[in-house]
Computed example of a mutant assay.
Amino acid sequence: MRGWKSLIVFLVLVTVAALVGATAAPDAWFAALQKPAFNPPNWVFGPAWTLLYGLMAIAAWRVYRVAGSGLAIGLWLVQLVVNAIWSPLFFGLHRIDLALVDIVVLDLLVLVTIVRFFRHDRLAGWLMLPYLAWIAFATLLNAAIWQLNS
């Protein structure tokens, strides 16, 4: 199942991660937090994540087609779980500190995943770079919010 049908599996996986994250959406608690000047407007997040999840799915699918379900795909799955945990920590439990730990781990996992992806499919590695850039920015944002509200 390394053809087009397997792409559907990866799209479903990122959709599940997105839905887990959506279970804990911004609320009045989040609105009341102090935020840094570089905090983007809320409407930016939905389109950004939609694009990033699509790129992530295509990247994983490309690697899966050439390498199967080895270490690279295993890392991709682990980072997807760590990604899905962030929103419930931050928005659901209001644990800015634990969310910061989670996203730093996510940064490292995504970096290692990208390195592994480049070994199998250069385009797949490139497709993951916008995701890394976005979560690096999100890490700074998370850290700033934690600092402003601690």
Rank of each mutant, 00 (worst) to 15 (best):
I8K: 09
V14F: 06
W29I: 07
R116G: 03
V104N: 03
D27Q: 02
F10C: 08
H94Y: 05
Q34P: 01
I73E: 08
Y53V: 06
V16D: 11
A24Y: 02
G68D: 13
L77R: 13
V115N: 04
K5M: 11
T15E: 14
A99G: 15
I58T: 09
I135M: 03
A124C: 01
V20G: 02
P47E: 08
A31T: 10
A72N: 08
P130D: 01
L55W: 02
L109T: 07
A84I: 12
D102H: 09
L33G: 03
W134E: 04
P41F: 00
M1C: 12
G46D: 08
P88C: 09
N39V: 03
S150Y: 11
V110P: 01
L13W: 10
Y53I: 01
V81L: 15
K35M: 05
N149C: 04
K5A: 14
P130T: 01
H94L: 00
L51I: 14
F90W: 08
N42S: 13
F45E: 07
W61E: 03
A32Q: 05
V81Y: 11
V14T: 15
I103R: 08
R2I: 12
W146Y: 15
A124P: 04
L140A: 14
F45R: 08
L93D: 07
L33D: 01
A144P: 07
G68C: 12
A84L: 10
W61N: 05
T15Y: 12
V78W: 10
L71D: 10
A17K: 10
I8D: 06
A60E: 06
A18W: 08
W29P: 05
P40K: 08
L71F: 13
F137H: 01
A133N: 01
L98Q: 05
A138P: 07
V115Y: 14
W49N: 09
Y53N: 14
H120W: 12
D27R: 06
L111R: 00
L109R: 07
H94F: 02
W61F: 09
V105N: 06
V115I: 15
A99E: 07
W49M: 10
D102R: 05
L100V: 12
R65W: 00
W43I: 11
A72Y: 02
V105G: 09
A84M: 11
G68K: 13
A136M: 04
A25N: 12
G21H: 09
